[in-house]
């Protein structure tokens, strides 16, 4: 008779349920309709089952996105949870697709599911990775662009976890500013 350790019987629950989304532009569909929910999960095991199953970001076709947001939050500015918020933006150069992109994206996912932003984790809505010819981007989206302390703490934790060199700064942009500046860069409300 085999005894199974309790660890093997019970999955490890996450603080939040998360939804993974995939975006691929299609000419006859609206932008919003091109965002597709892949799956939701609320345990560590189910996170890995999903992550291990899907293409890494670096292998996606140019123009595609992955997003991972708390369940009930759509990966778009217009969602009521996002519209007053903004994002920490990591811009990658073309070389970094093969060296950093997958690592960075995975680390961001682990930060989120692990609630690594301490009490500021509630401000986190989700994250997006954009695979683009001119350079890939990763954004960590937060709910309220006026919560200075939370935004700065989230940015600091993010920068340390991604091992971004001290002299390289990353910026936080409010979505309302980004909306107004299509094609060029929105101003940074904060940098770390």
């Amino acid at each position: 008779q085999k005894t199974v350790a309790p660890d093997m019987l019970i999955k490890h629950p996450l603080q939040n349920t998360w939804t993974l989304w995939f975006f691929k532009i299609e000419s006859n569909r609206s932008w919003e309709d091109c965002q597709v929910e892949i799956a939701s999960f609320n345990t560590v095991e189910d996170f890995w089952a999903l992550y291990n199953h899907i293409e890494p970001a670096s292998r996606l076709k140019v123009g595609c996105d992955y997003s991972m947001f708390k369940q009930g939050i759509k990966p778009m500015w217009e969602d009521e949870h996002n519209c007053r918020g903004g994002r920490w933006l990591i811009n990658l150069n073309k070389q970094q697709r093969s060296t950093e992109l997958d690592n960075f994206w995975m680390e961001v996912l682990l930060l989120m599911i692990g609630e690594s932003f301490e009490e500021h984790s509630d401000e986190v809505c989700g994250a997006v990775v954009n695979v683009r010819g001119k350079g890939d981007k990763i954004g960590v989206w937060t709910a309220d662009a006026k919560k200075n302390d939370s935004i700065l703490k989230i940015g600091q934790v993010l920068k340390v976890r991604l091992n971004i060199p001290r002299q390289v700064s990353i910026g936080f942009q409010a979505h309302t500013d980004t909306m107004l500046k299509s094609g060029s860069t929105a101003k940074n409300r904060f940098t770390v």
């Binding site: 490890h12 996450l14 682990l110 692990g114």
Partner: peptide, 18 residues
């Protein structure tokens, strides 16, 4: 209230567990 927090090393250890 309480919050469920997972450290990075623990999450990575779980990656290939059955």
């Amino acid at each position: 209230g309480t919050r469920i927090i997972y450290e990075r090393t623990f999450l990575l250890q779980m990656r290939n567990s059955p």
